[in-house]
């Protein structure tokens, strides 16, 4: 069976664009493992963080999405506890 590339799209609304941008910057730097058969792209539009995955195998896609959600949850908890963002000093 010839497998088609799999896609997954996630849109996460934040209370404001600053928070969406912070989440984007915190979650972007670590790329998916080399030649892992999965790619992930992040972007921000207003207050929405959008993530798009493309993968060869469902198993790899599931692991990548699962781990991203854990990290996203950590960012949100960090903002809840240590936010809101300070004004420029």
């Amino acid at each position: 069976m010839e497998a088609l590339p799999l896609h997954f799209q996630l849109d996460v609304p934040f209370p404001c664009s600053t928070e969406a941008q912070i989440a984007h910057n915190s979650l972007s730097p670590d790329a998916e493992p080399r030649k892992g058969g999965v790619s992930r792209t992040l972007s921000v539009q207003d207050n929405v963080l959008s993530v798009h995955w493309q993968a060869d195998e469902a198993r790899i896609l599931r692991v990548s999405v699962g781990s991203f959600l854990e990290h996203l949850s950590l960012v949100v908890r960090t903002m809840d506890r240590f936010g809101p963002a300070l004004s420029d000093s």
Partner: peptide, 14 residues
């Protein structure tokens, strides 16, 4: 996991 928290607070606190 730890780097993500550091990045987030660095941005929150500027």
């Amino acid at each position: 996991s730890v780097a993500i928290v550091a990045r987030t607070v660095a941005q929150l606190w500027k």
